[in-house]
Amino acid sequence: MKQRQAATDVPEAQDIPSIIRPYGDTTGDAMVQMSFTLPVPAGRRAEIAALRLAGQMGLDPASVVHSKPMGPNFTFFIVYGKVNHLIDYAGIEVPAGREYPLLAAKEVDLAIRTVLNRRLVVVGACIGTDAHTVGIDAILNVKGFAGEKGLEYHREIQVINMGAQVTVAELVERAKAENADAVLVSQVVTQKNAHIHNTKQMAAAFHDAYPTAVGPGMGRPLLIAGGPRFDTVTEEELGVDRIFGKGTTPGEVAAYLVHALLPNWIPSEPS
């Protein structure tokens, strides 16, 4: 399966140069653009500072194509330049794709019905001070996201959406009371790394609350964190089973639930 995917996803090797540079309008021109602000008054001296920065970033030659004062003490710059870096593209391993197949809604329900023989219970919440329920609602509410219905839509999934500003203790208590198969938390607010801190705290609390658990679905719920800014951390660092990023659709989450909680399910061949 993976081989077939690799064969279709990656074009013929001879089409791609093995060493690459950025492309402006000519192969190998290595042109990039960037914008930034310096905390100094606009003027020739500020421009020299901007060019020094560009130089230290490896842009040579660089040119300031736009500079604009923003109040008396700040200047905004747009800089173009040629980078001197080379990227060994051939040395980059093709990253693994999604490790599970997407499933139609009917297929998800069938899997749960067949393997579990009861409804799969999902408890979701925005934890900590975060009041932005956009993400969790997009995944859980019937309304869904990107044209896909949310998990509530599934006949075989029981959704408990606790909403915003739920404490970790409340979440753990509810998950236990409902015998949750999976717990979804959404974190949007990133100020002072609140999303990382909150999620770690949540994961730790669940691991404490289910001390004898062997793994997700084996003595404890599957722990899923979602949010737009989790791209700097790994599942292991947070203590969760899975992180979903920006643009995740309910269908991807539903398919993951089947993959992680019902590993013995074999989807029927598409007819």
């Binding site: 604009k68 990133t190 100020q191």
Partner: peptide, 11 residues
């Protein structure tokens, strides 16, 4: 949706 507004974003 990326970050709270920078000075330059506002400008």
């Amino acid at each position: 949706g990326i970050h709270t507004p920078w000075l330059s974003d506002r400008d």
